[in-house]
Design a protein around this nucleic acid. Structure first.
Lengths: 209, 209, 209, 209
DNA sequence: TATGAATGAGATTTCATTCAT
DNA sequence: CATGAATGAAATCTCATTCAT
C-alpha cells in the first residue's frame, strides 16, 4: 500500500517532468518508464493508459493550484480583494513551478476530443471560481453589472497567454511583474479604478457600508 | 509541368479541413493525400514534412486573418474605433470560419516545442498590431498610459479563450454575442467607458459610501 | 520474459540467409521479420536499426571464422605450417559456408562509408593475424625480411578475389582446388619454395643465359 | 550533337563524384541532377536508368585505366617488364584519381546480381591482360609453369585490397610506396627474384637468349 | 531534346499496449 | 505486484521513374 503510492508518485513525477518538457505525443511511455525507474507493466498497473496517466497528472496539478488559490481567497475579505489575491497566487505559483504552468496551460489543446474535454473541465473550475466572486461583487454593488461569465473566461485567457509567453520568452522576469498591469486592466475592466502606488490599502474595502 | 500552384492549393485545402477536424497527430499524411487527390510524393514535393505543411497552413491562415483585420482598421478612423473594428472582424471571421479558428487557436499547443514557437510567432504578429494602435491611442491622449504590451497579449488571450470555448461548447451562439461584453471589458480596461458615457465610475473601489 | 537469446538468434539466422541471398538493400526488414517469425517490433527490440543488425551479423560471422582459424593455428607448429593451416581453414570454411563467404566478402563494399569502415575493421583483424605469424617467421629466420603488413593485406585481397570469383562463377569447384596454387604463390612470394624443394630458382630474372 | 555530348559528360562527371563519395544507393538521382545542372528528364534521356548510368560510368573509367595500362605495356619489352610497368601504372593512376579507385574497386559488390556481373566482367578484362603476359612469360621460360589464371586474380585482389586500404586510411602515402613490396611479392611469387636497389636494370631482360 | 511536377510502391522505424513468467 | 520481451498496426518519408508541357 505504501509502496504502491510511492511507485505511483514516482511515475507521476517522471511524467510531469517529461510531459512539461516535450509534450504529450513527443514523450514515449518508454521514457517515463526509464525516468521513473519502473517497469512498463508497473506503469500500466497504476494507470490503464498513457492518456489516463496524463489526465491523472492534470487533475493532480489543477487540484494543487486550485487549493492554493482557495486558501488565499479564504484568507482575504471582500470580493475584489479576493480576486486580487487569487491572481497573485496563480501568477506566483506558476512562476515558481514552471512545469506546472507548462502542463496546465499548454497541454491538451490539439490532442483530440478527450483532451479538450479535460481542459474545458479544468478551466471551467477556475472560471467558476472567478465568476462566483464577480457575481458576489456585483450583488454587493461593488462593481457594475456585467457579463461575469465572459469576464471570467477572458481573464483566464489573458493569464494563460501571458504565462505562456513567459514560459517561452522568459519575459517578464519575474512573471509577477505582470501583476500590476494585469490587475489594472482587469479591475478597471470591471469598473474599479486600480489603486495607484500611493494609496494601496491593506484593509478590506467592504466593511463600512 | 502540371499546374504546380493548383496542386499546392489542393493539398493545403485538404490539410486545413483534416487538421481542423482531427488535429495534427490524429491526421495521417495518407488521409491528406487521399483528400487532396495527390500522390504521397506530390505532397512531399511541395512540403518537405508534415510539420512544414502544418506551418505553411498556419501562416496562410494567419496571413488571411491579419489582412482582413488590417483592411478593417484602415477603413476606420480613430484608435478606439479601429480597435473595435479589429475585434469585430476577428470574432466575425473566426465565427464564420470555424476551421480557421480551430487551427489557429487550438492546434499548436501541446505539440512540442517547434509548434509552440510557431504559435508564439503568429500571436506576436497580432499582438504587435494591437499594441501599435494602443500606443497611438495613448499618444493621442485617448487612453491613459498603460502597459500596452501586456494589454495586447491579455486581449489576445481573452479572445483565444472565448473562441476556444465557443468551438467546444458552441456557446455563445453566435460567437459575436460576446462582442459587447468583451468590448466593454477591454475598453473599460483601458479607461474608456463603453458604451454608455453616463455610467463612468470615477471613484476607486474603496469609497466607503 | 520470453526467451530473449532464442529470438535474437532466430533473427540473426534469418538475416544471414537473406542478406547472403539478396544483399543488404535488396532485403527488406519485412522479409527478415517473416523469415524469423518475429514481429517487426521484435527485431527492433534486439537491433536498433537494419544497419546495426547487419553489423552484428558481420561481427558474429567474422568471430566464428577467426576462431576456427585460430584453433587451427594453435594446432600446428612452425610459422609456415601455421600459415598453411590458416589458409586451408579459411578456404575450406568459406567453401562449406557459402553464405558466410557471401556476407563477409561481398557485402559491405558499395553500401556507403559506415559499411566500409566496418569491413575495414574486420579485415584488419585478419590482416593482423597473418602479419603476426609472418613477423614470427621473419624473426625465426624462416623467411627473408619483407614488408609483412603489405603482404598480409595482399594475401587477404587475393583470397577475397578468388573466393568472390568462386561465388559468382562457381569455379573452381571445389574452391579448395585453388589451395595449392595459392599456397605456391604466397609462400614463394615470401621466399619459401613450395611444394618441391628442388626447383628453387635462385637466380634473378636477368641472368642472360 | 555537340551539346548532347556535353550534357552527357556533365552527368557522368557529377555521377562519378557522387558515387565515389557516397556509393550507389546513397546517391539519389536528384543529387546527380542538381550537381550536373541538368533536369531529371535530361538524365533519363541520356541514360535509361540509374543502373545504366552507373554501368556507363564504370565502363568509361575501366576503359580509361585499361588504355593507360596497355599503352605502358606497349612501351615496355619483355613480359616481366611489362608486368612491372602495368602495376606501376595502375597504382600511379589510382593514386592520382582517388575517385576512379573508389568507384572501380569499391562499388558493385553487394548491389545485386547485375552489378556483380558487371564487376566480374571488368575484373576479367584486367585479369586476362595479366594472364596473357604471364602465359607469355611461362612460354618463354622466364617463369616456371604456374596456374596463371589464379595468379592473375590473386594479384588483382591484392592490388584491390591495398588500394582500398589506402582510400580509407590514407596509408601508405603515397600509395605508390607499396610498389616495391608488392612487386617483390608478386615476382618472387612467380619465381623471379625481385631486383634489389643496386641492380635495377633499365634494359629489357629478354634480348640475349 | 529538355523540364520538373507528380507518381506510388515500398522502406524503415515507432510506440502504446499486452502477457508469459 | 512487477518485469520487459514481444506485438503489430500505423506513420512518415524516399526515390527511381514517368510524362504533359
Amino acid at each position: 500500500m505504501r509502496d504502491k503510492e510511492l511507485t505511483r508518485g514516482r511515475i507521476l513525477d517522471a511524467a510531469e517532468k517529461l510531459f512539461a518538457q516535450k509534450g504529450f505525443h513527443e514523450t514515449a511511455m518508454e521514457e517515463i518508464v526509464r525516468a521513473a525507474k519502473v517497469s512498463k507493466g508497473g506503469v500500466y498497473f497504476h494507470f490503464p493508459s498513457k492518456e489516463a496517466l496524463f489526465f491523472a497528472l492534470l487533475d493532480k496539478l489543477a487540484d494543487a493550484l486550485q487549493q492554493e488559490v482557495q486558501q488565499e481567497i479564504a484568507r482575504r475579505r471582500g470580493a475584489v480583494n479576493k480576486i486580487q489575491g487569487a491572481l497573485e497566487v496563480v501568477l506566483r505559483t506558476l512562476s515558481g513551478k514552471r512545469r506546472l504552468a507548462q502542463i496546465l496551460l499548454r497541454q491538451g489543446y490539439g490532442l483530440g476530443p478527450a483532451f479538450e474535454r479535460k481542459r474545458l473541465e479544468i478551466y471551467s473550475r477556475f472560471a467558476q471560481l472567478i465568476q462566483k466572486y464577480l457575481d458576489e461583487a456585483a450583488a454587493e454593488g461593488s462593481i457594475p453589472s456585467i457579463n461575469t461569465e465572459i469576464t471570467a473566461y477572458a481573464w483566464l485567457g489573458a493569464i494563460n497567454e501571458l504565462v505562456l509567453r513567459w514560459i517561452y520568452t522568459g519575459e517578464p522576469d519575474p512573471l509577477t511583474e505582470t501583476l500590476p498591469a494585469l490587475l489594472e486592466i482587469f479591475l478597471r475592466g470591471i469598473g474599479i479604478e486600480y489603486p495607484h502606488k500611493s494609496r494601496l490599502r491593506k484593509e478590506p474595502y467592504d466593511h463600512a457600508t
